[in-house]
Amino acid sequence: MNIELITLLRAISGVLLFTLLLALMWLVWRDLKATEQQVSSGRRPLGRLTVVEPVGKTFIPTGQIYPLLTVTTIGRSPGSTIMIDDSFVSSEHAVIAMRGGQWWLEDRGSRNGTQLNDMTIAQPVIVTNGDIVCVGQKRFRIELEH
């Protein structure tokens, strides 16, 4: 048994193992950081507002999606959660908000009104999954997360 050679092999093995460990630690750390970013960037969207177009009796998503927040304001003003540059839309047109465990849709005194499933609303109403909200020329489908 060659003692010097084995000592050398043990030292090399130790260095390799240590390098391997560092590489793996770095990989785990990178993955965890990415996960953390993912969590903070997608901080609890409660649902989505999917822009749809009516085609016959059904609605087709256009591909535009907005996050639904606890208080989502829709209007022409730049401070709105969803800003729509459309002359039919008032600067503060409508708001969708969570109150008492329910989602409420409220018209904020707009000129042209807000429609829920093609019915103009006069006072705040409760909305649920799949409802179509129409603001100006834009229709949104409410998709809630559980």
């Binding site: 993912q38 969207p45 822009v51 535009q64 999606i65 907005y66 996050p67 729509i84 540059d85 459309d86």
Partner: peptide
């Protein structure tokens, strides 16, 4: 014509791979 200036949420929380 109306343009959407709000930042749309990119594809729903797709994880970068």
């Amino acid at each position: 014509m109306s343009t959407l200036s709000a930042v749309p949420l990119a594809a729903p929380a797709v994880v970068q791979t």
